[in-house]
Design a protein around this nucleic acid. Structure first.
Lengths: 341, 341
DNA sequence: CTGAAAGCGCTTACAG
DNA sequence: CTGAAAGCGCTTACAG
């Protein structure tokens, strides 16, 4: 069944030349190998004519390169990771790479398994959004000399290239904005996680609160929780902290749960309570009131990720200083944090 | 640099046995090949000890199987395709497959290129959300005997397994609901596309309108448009059809543009205009008013996709009747389509 | 019960 | 200027 696959051997036979010559011509090394222009033309013409495509797997086995990069994110269905994955794919494609993706759902063991799988399939580089506890696994991959870029959150104590955003600074700015709008008791809803980006965001919050001699009121929920768990925790938190007049959500899905909770409690935004959130969503600006968000620059982030990866691919991963590139996010102020006079 | 890779040859040498014996043991064929339990145990123990992992690429080259499936969607960052991709990945993983994904952004040539790339990398099966014009390319892949499942929209005249939803029926139900709520002039906003799912949705609309002797008022926009184009077209459409008192959006991103337009025009939902949309979004239920949606069952869809794919993988793609499986969607009525008395 | 050998489809030193 | 040959790391008829 199916078409019988043509190989360079068949082409070589057709022209009565060696396989190697065909291989060189196909790989554009005809000139370098001083193969006659005429033969080159004839072979390429034939290749075109019969629609020959080299067998990638065989090539990969021979060269050790697979022309694919592995992308490990938290959740490909997420409104932040999905769109960034699209950008990454577009860039990868323009560089001749395919993308193999996988979602960890925050599970460390899962992430380690995925990484192992990627290693076995010989991806040429890795873009990793690591859950906590992946330090060793990532180091192991790097020891093999493969390029790795860590994204979104840092990996404690691992010498590796990192691309992220100014979490602390921009969260600080957002909280200062809340203060300036007259909110007196800002609650911070985050994950119970030591992920660096979450810690940084929390620090930005603390910095703003401290500076204004306010009270830190923080709710940390488990990532594994489902939405109704999130909602229950937020509800209870609001009941225990009646004085809270604004909420900052450290990531998008927490905000979704939060908005639902506020609606259930019939709290009005921003009169009863102000709302701001880390990560933009197409629909936040369409809410009534529109939600204040912190927008990460997807285009710039994906660009930085690839530039870094490419440098590594060219230079190899040894003897080069590892870079930590911070692409600033933008605070988008909307009505959910503007107190009407 | 890096660890030097261990191969089955090294293991064979270590035990003074043949590579083939090692291969059989590793692949669980020891019993079948009548290799002594004792040797099997020793070899497996050693494999474990040195952390040997077979080289997937080499295995693939030898077997012709890559243990990966190619997923071609419209846009991995989309609120429908992203989450379904996650489900598909989870199922693939549980079956021992990796997923290679790629987004077409509705571009036929892009889709064909992706398909070609997937063929070259020897994926074992394809899940395709095809743009129009992919008929030939898909048929070509099928002629190679590879399993293909078409998803979301059908491919005209191609004998292939298809998984989709009851587009016409459920859109009809949604429009009938609008009629029952007293909306008199329902506008339908869709893509200018012959994709089957869009045609079916339009037909569902027409069926409901005809049945109630209403006027069909349809806006078809180009997929390639960006959001501000969508907005302008919708705005103009509303100006030209002042009598329209409800809008049904045939897909999610059109609704986003539509909601923004309605906000700009200061139209109140549902008093001035009712709103319903095909495809659920986490945030639609949190709008004020909450938006009526048609929710596709992601879990069931991904399950059906995989069952079908698996059957094909087992049976081969010949001589079997192709199936067309329709998984019904659900209408979720919310305030955006309920006329207050 | 086990092994030698050919083959998957390429690439690339090496030799002339 | 070009080709023969070894090798990438596996699998699997085949032979004994």
């Amino acid at each position: 069944m199916g078409v019988k696959k043509i190989s360079i051997y068949d082409i070589a036979k057709h022209f009565q030349i060696a396989k190697s010559t065909v291989s060189f011509i196909i790989n554009g090394k005809a000139e370098e190998r001083r193969i006659s222009k005429e033969l080159e033309k004839r072979v390429l013409g034939y290749v075109e004519e019969i629609g020959f495509k080299p067998h990638y797997l065989a090539r990969s086995l021979a060269t050790g390169k697979s022309n694919s990069i592995g992308l490990i994110v938290e959740n490909i269905g997420d409104s932040f990771f999905g769109p960034i994955a699209l950008k990454i794919e577009e860039r990868a494609k323009s560089m001749g790479y395919r993308v193999v993706y996988s979602s960890t759902l925050g599970n460390t063991q899962e992430a380690i398994d995925i990484l192992k799988l990627f290693r076995e399939t010989q991806v040429d580089g890795y873009i990793i959004v690591p859950p906590v506890g992946m330090e060793e696994a990532v180091e192991e991959v790097m020891r093999e000399g493969k390029p790795v870029v860590v994204f979104d959150r840092m990996l404690d104590g691992v010498q590796v290239d990192y691309i992220g955003t100014n979490n602390q600074e921009i969260t600080y700015a957002a909280c200062m904005h809340l203060v300036e709008e007259g909110f007196k008791n800002i609650g911070f809803v985050t994950l119970d996680s030591s992920q660096s980006q979450m810690v940084e965001r929390l620090n930005g919050y603390k910095q703003a609160i401290d500076q204004n001699n306010g009270n830190e009121v923080v709710l940390s929920v488990n990532y594994c929780s489902n939405r109704s768990d999130y909602k229950n925790e937020i509800k209870q938190f609001l009941q225990e902290h009646q004085q809270v007049d604004a909420l900052f959500f450290a990531t998008n899905y927490l905000c979704v749960a939060g908005l639902e909770t506020l609606r259930d409690l019939q709290k009005h935004i921003p009169e009863d309570i102000g709302v701001a959130v880390f990560d933009e969503n197409d629909l936040f600006r369409l809410f009534d009131p529109a939600i204040t968000t912190i927008e990460q620059p997807l285009e710039d982030l994906s660009k930085a990720i690839f530039q870094t990866l490419q440098k590594r691919i060219l230079r190899g991963s040894n003897r080069v200083v590892y870079t930590k590139k911070i692409i600033p996010s933008r605070l988008i102020v909307r009505q959910s944090t503007i107190r009407r006079k």
